[in-house]
Simulated assay, not measured.
Amino acid sequence: MQELEDILIQSDMGMNIVLKISNNIEKKFSKGWPTEKINDFLVEQLMSFYDDPKSKENKINLYKKKLSPILVVGVNGVGKTTSIAKIANFYKEKNYKVLLVAGDTFRAGAVEQLSLWAERLEIEIIKPDKEQQDPASVVYKGLEYGKNNNFDIVLIDTAGRLQNKVNLMKELEKINNIIVKVTNDKPAETLLVIDAITGQNGVIQAETFSEISKISGIVLTKMDGTAKGGVVLAIRDKLNIPVKFIGTGEKLSDISIFDIEEYVYNLTKDLFEPDIQGENDGN
């Protein structure tokens, strides 16, 4: 049990979930430890923390026959701009007409970086007319352009600073009001980008952004590294926010819609060695 707890802790799912799972396993298998059954029970437990994988809220929400604004938030350095480019490419390949809006008008190089991605993807982008322009005015311009030119999706980049939460809260509130004003609806999605390698710090980021804006889903980047991404379950357990996309590499195509069953399989497939199973089976 100690070894199992250590493995689960190292996956960054947090002590709260680890202790719940550990206690449940000890209760279930107090009279014996058949490894294969423990593994199956562990999978059931992990799935239960994520609730129904077929739930509508776990799927990407796009409006039918009208513009779908997707607001993307996150601290600087987590791969927010690259994730926006990957999501844009994901939908472009599915024949959606996608527009980028450079709403991060404060970070030096943010507009230029997103512009380079737009050029590479051969999709249009709405940029500020001057340095440190009010982001809401850029978003307004982008939404009007998107609506008048029959775009399906508008991906909106936002500032990633958390030093002054009040200012960021007001900025995002203003942007949300602009979205409602132009489209008569709230954003189709508000996605928070989190780096899987940051572990439990990702939970803190999710908590902070949840205080600032209504987050509908997570984009988890760098799932290609050594990180197991247990933060997926930690955020779901604490804040009830589902993961919508995972980034699995550096290429534009290295992004996919999150699949909880595949995730749990990858998390548990190497937990028990065959020789240990053989010993427990009496072989």
Results as ranks from 00 to 15, higher is better:
residue 182 V to G: 13
residue 41 F to M: 12
residue 83 S to G: 04
residue 163 Q to C: 00
residue 215 I to S: 07
residue 98 V to G: 02
residue 29 F to K: 06
residue 242 P to Y: 08
residue 194 I to N: 02
residue 278 G to N: 14
residue 189 E to P: 13
residue 103 G to P: 05
residue 132 Q to W: 06
residue 140 Y to G: 01
residue 260 I to S: 09
residue 118 A to F: 00
residue 205 Q to R: 12
residue 273 E to C: 00
residue 16 N to C: 01
residue 194 I to R: 10
residue 83 S to R: 10
residue 199 G to I: 04
residue 13 M to R: 04
residue 15 M to A: 14
residue 11 S to R: 07
residue 30 S to H: 10
residue 96 Y to L: 06
residue 157 D to Q: 13
residue 234 A to F: 02
residue 227 A to D: 11
residue 138 V to P: 12
residue 185 D to T: 15
residue 264 V to E: 02
residue 23 N to W: 01
residue 67 L to Y: 01
residue 94 K to R: 14
residue 12 D to Q: 09
residue 9 I to C: 01
residue 144 E to Q: 09
residue 18 V to L: 12
residue 113 Q to P: 04
residue 251 K to F: 05
residue 7 I to E: 14
residue 71 L to E: 01
residue 93 E to K: 15
residue 218 I to D: 08
residue 255 I to R: 10
residue 150 N to L: 05
residue 176 N to K: 15
residue 238 K to L: 06
residue 45 Q to A: 13
residue 42 L to E: 09
residue 96 Y to V: 06
residue 227 A to Y: 03
residue 140 Y to R: 12
residue 154 V to W: 00
residue 235 I to H: 06
residue 1 M to N: 04
residue 61 N to F: 07
residue 197 I to H: 06
residue 220 L to M: 13
residue 201 N to E: 15
residue 149 N to W: 02
residue 92 K to I: 11
residue 183 T to L: 11
residue 98 V to W: 08
residue 249 G to V: 12
residue 150 N to A: 03
residue 151 F to N: 05
residue 201 N to M: 02
residue 271 L to N: 00
residue 161 R to Y: 04
residue 16 N to T: 12
residue 16 N to P: 00
residue 265 Y to W: 05
residue 59 K to T: 12
residue 29 F to Q: 03
residue 271 L to Y: 09
residue 28 K to Y: 00
residue 57 E to H: 03
residue 63 Y to S: 04
residue 202 G to W: 07
residue 41 F to S: 13
residue 110 A to S: 14
residue 154 V to T: 10
residue 7 I to M: 14
residue 138 V to L: 04
residue 266 N to Q: 14
residue 254 D to A: 12
residue 59 K to E: 15
residue 247 G to M: 08
residue 189 E to R: 08
residue 49 F to G: 11
residue 267 L to S: 07
residue 91 Y to A: 00
residue 44 E to I: 09
residue 202 G to M: 05
residue 257 I to H: 08
residue 32 G to D: 06
residue 27 K to L: 14
residue 262 E to M: 00
